Computed example of a mutant assay.
Amino acid sequence: MEITQPTAPTATISTPYSALSPPTITDSASAAPPSARPQTPSTASPSARADQTLQLCRSCVDSAAREVRLSCPNERQGAIWYEFCTLRYSNDPIYQTQTADPTYMLRNTQNVSDGDRFRADRTALVDQLAAQAANGTQLKVGVGSRNFSDLAIYALVQCTPDFSREECQRCLSEASQGYQSYLSQGFRVLNPNCNIRYELSTSTMKLG
């Protein structure tokens, strides 16, 4: 199943909904040489997918941290996405700080036929899960499904745990705008603070 790139920046994947490979890294450092940059402390914000084990999450974050150090040794801020985790770092405050830069999108090139109904069901499901995630305490995640013809739409949404209810809802609402013009059977929106993933399937979606 082919994956195409929407107009927004898109992470690279080798197979449909497989691990992001190679890891997507972005930075917004100045063009000044390392010796001229201020040596201020960096803070990092790791986030693992909520349906994974603690061991897998730690392994993913460790890999992301190593890749960031290798690929961005002198940059002041950046982000990296893997299949099971995200790592963001910056010399600026991160805690409870929302940013949509960068946002990456992945979409399935196969479209549904009943567009109006699909849009309505997709919106209802994601809105329900966004409310579930926003009302979370230690974990801000929502997972669920909604019947669509003889299939079902399965979705997972997640915010970083430092976000308030309102911040999480706002982040997911803004992220959902990325797929509104598409009728794709599957889509992912990856954001430093939140992410949305849905897929149309005949059986329970296995996110692992």
Rank of each mutant, 00 (worst) to 15 (best):
E2N: 14
P6G: 03
T10K: 15
T10Y: 14
I13N: 08
S14V: 11
S14W: 06
Y17F: 15
L20A: 10
L20E: 13
S21N: 10
P22A: 09
I25Q: 05
I25T: 07
A29E: 15
S30M: 12
A32K: 10
S35I: 15
S35F: 11
R37M: 07
P38D: 13
S42H: 02
S42N: 00
P46E: 11
R49L: 12
Q52D: 15
Q55M: 02
Q55F: 03
Q55I: 09
R58H: 08
S59D: 12
V61P: 05
D62W: 09
A64E: 10
R69F: 02
C72K: 05
N74F: 11
Q77H: 05
Q77K: 07
G78C: 06
G78M: 08
I80S: 05
T86A: 09
L87E: 01
R88P: 10
P93M: 14
I94A: 06
I94S: 04
Q96L: 12
T97W: 02
Q98C: 12
A100D: 12
T103F: 06
T103R: 10
R107K: 15
T109A: 15
S113L: 14
D114H: 12
T123K: 11
V126D: 07
L129C: 00
A131D: 06
A133R: 05
A134D: 08
N135K: 12
N135H: 03
Q138A: 14
K140W: 01
K140A: 01
K140N: 04
V141S: 10
R146D: 03
R146C: 04
N147R: 10
Q158C: 01
T160M: 04
P161I: 07
D162H: 02
E166K: 01
C168P: 05
E174Y: 00
S181F: 08
Y182N: 01
S184T: 04
S184Q: 02
G186Y: 00
G186W: 01
F187E: 02
V189N: 00
C194W: 10
T202Q: 04
T202H: 04
M205I: 03
M205T: 03
K206I: 00
